[in-house]
Amino acid sequence: MTDNTPASDTPASEWGAGLLDLDAYLRRIGRPVPAAPTVESLRELHRAHVTAIPFENLDVLLDRGVRLDIGSIQAKLVESRRGGYCYEHNLLFAAVLERLGYRVTRLLARVGPLGERRRPRTHAMLLAEAGGTRHLVDVGFGGEGLLEPLPFADGAVSQVGPWSWRLGRAGDEWVLSTLRPDGWAELYAFRLEVHHPVDFEVSNHYTSTAPASPFVRHVIVQRTTPGERHRLQGLELDGNELKPGELHAVLEEVFGIGLGPEEAETLVRHVTSAN
């Protein structure tokens, strides 16, 4: 596939985009309905989503599993004002963009540097067409993920506040990197391939159940603002160790995630046994 060949996606109906409550989603992220599917609107929606909806894996640790149908994702991330991880975030955002008139391609990526052993495709992200150009769109990476879309071009670089990203070619793969104090570090690599919902279901099953997956071993929660990120892994919040009894309040006060007492106790038992 050449640079000029657009990756095609399966029909929006196969992904359930028509089931989305667009008005409820826009209220969730605090944005009005865009006047047109422009690059600027895409940028504003992307930033609003990342800063409004946290990244989190709590349902995996609560033994609920992670469902990828639009109804379930919407009930969790929009109606219950929870967060989710990459599949949930980006499948929801893909449905939003399609309802707003963007052409969207859903993709899967391998996380980590290319030089290491090949990892499974456990990350979901998107391409979106706006203004006659394509952009890498990813509202669900967590970690050092994008705050705004990145032009889909070899060598494209974006800087937003204190963070920078670069997109480049490596053979038949595209690689997203982020700038760290010691230089550029590869975040993930992907190919332009057609995917179907079943492909995402398989990747999601591995991510939410495999012993090697970090999401089954640790509490991982992140909230991004335009200038900073707050990250909780296990009982460590932004480099500071929490007491188990503080976990419930931190989830609500820092990340906007309200849990019931029994849910909070389950997470406390999990992080305590993991330490």
Rank of each mutant, 00 (worst) to 15 (best):
N4T: 11
T5S: 13
S8H: 14
T10Q: 05
P11V: 02
W15S: 11
G18P: 09
Y25Q: 04
R27G: 15
P32W: 03
V33D: 06
A36F: 03
P37E: 06
V39T: 13
H46M: 12
H49F: 06
A52I: 06
F55R: 00
V60S: 02
D63V: 03
D63M: 15
R67H: 13
L68G: 00
D69L: 09
S72N: 04
A75D: 01
G84K: 05
Y85H: 11
C86G: 07
Y87K: 01
H89L: 04
L91N: 07
G101T: 02
L107E: 04
L114N: 01
E116T: 00
P120T: 09
T122S: 14
H123V: 00
G131I: 02
H135Y: 14
H135R: 05
V139E: 04
G140S: 03
L147T: 08
E148Q: 15
P162L: 14
L167V: 04
G168W: 09
E173A: 14
W174D: 06
A189M: 00
L192Q: 13
E201A: 14
E201I: 07
V202R: 10
A212P: 01
S213K: 13
P214Y: 06
R217F: 00
R217P: 03
V221N: 04
L232M: 05
Q233H: 08
L235R: 13
E236Q: 09
D238R: 14
D238Q: 01
P244A: 10
G245E: 12
V254P: 07
I257E: 03
L259T: 01
G260A: 12
E262T: 12
E262G: 07
E263Q: 15
V268T: 05
H270I: 14
V271P: 02
T272N: 05
S273A: 15
